[in-house]
């Protein structure tokens, strides 16, 4: 027979244990305080941080590698606008659930390193006051051009323009991406390389097939010429042989 109300007392003992334990056992506290409060080597205020090139505030080295906030645009090594991956296909703009992306396609095409001339975004704005950090734009992008940033210090006194990130604010180098999300960036680069290799292999295969076809056509022409010379002695109503059979004959010969 259990005592009436014993369950409540048991529960209260558990909470009391946690309450007191949190003062003596630092292991219990799982809250990470705002970074520069504890790290004495870091400056005391956000404004004191040295700005790195292409970054608004400070390096986001203190958040985990899995932290995601708002999207950013990637560019490869070189001048940002020369190596931007985005081709202004506007898939992300159409897929964005809260409709926070605004893209204007360029009129001219631009040469890309190791590729054909492509369009580029003349305007690429993301309203981070609307963005819900769903990462759908990242998932739909066929060019690996948009990925998630982990920068979170975006507070600004300007409610409208300050929270509207322009193309220049969004452009980040691939190295920066490697710095904030090493594993993810490595995976993505590997996939891009694999895709490229597969594409190359396919291209080669297609070229080989083309070559074979060309050869086959030559062979066909040859055999037809031979047939024409024989036609005088044979029945003219006989249908001409197909090219594959010609190939076989060639192979067997």
């Amino acid at each position: 027979m259990n005592l009436l109300g014993a369950g409540i007392l048991k529960g209260m003992a558990v909470t009391l244990k946690n309450f007191i334990g949190s003062y003596f056992d630092k292991e219990r506290l799982n809250t990470l305080e705002y970074m520069w409060q504890n790290d004495k080597s870091l400056p005391k205020r956000a404004g004191d941080y040295p700005k790195e090139e292409g970054e608004q505030l400070r390096p986001t080295t203190t958040v985990t590698n899995y932290s995601r906030n708002f999207p950013m645009l990637l560019h490869d090594d070189g001048e940002p606008m020369d190596t931007i991956r985005c081709v202004a296909c506007q898939i992300c703009e159409r897929e964005c659930p809260p409709q926070c992306i605004y893209i204007e396609k360029s009129d001219d095409k631009k040469e890309r390193p190791g590729g054909k001339p492509q369009f580029y975004p003349a305007t690429f704005d993301i309203d981070v006051s609307v963005c819900m950090s769903c990462q759908i734009c990242v998932e739909v992008c066929p060019f690996d051009a948009i990925v998630m940033n982990s920068q979170f210090e975006l507070s600004t006194p300007d409610r409208f323009n300050g929270l509207l990130l322009k193309r220049g604010d969004l452009l980040k180098s691939n190295q920066y991406y490697h710095k904030i999300h090493p594993e993810e960036a490595a995976d993505r680069d590997k996939r891009i390389a694999d895709d490229k290799a597969a594409k190359e292999a396919k291209k080669k295969a297609a070229e080989a097939a083309k070559e074979a076809k060309k050869k086959a056509a030559e062979a066909k022409a040859k055999s037809e010429a031979e047939a024409n010379s024989k036609e005088e002695s044979k029945d003219p109503s006989e249908p001409p042989q197909t090219s594959t059979e010609h190939n076989k004959e060639e192979n067997t010969e």
Binding site: N18, F19, G21, S22, R28, L29, T31
Partner: peptide, 19 residues
Amino acid sequence: ALARIQNRIGPNKVGVPMS
């Protein structure tokens, strides 16, 4: 108290601003 029961820290930043 509720924060400590849940092993959190609770409000500890707001004080006299003297920065």
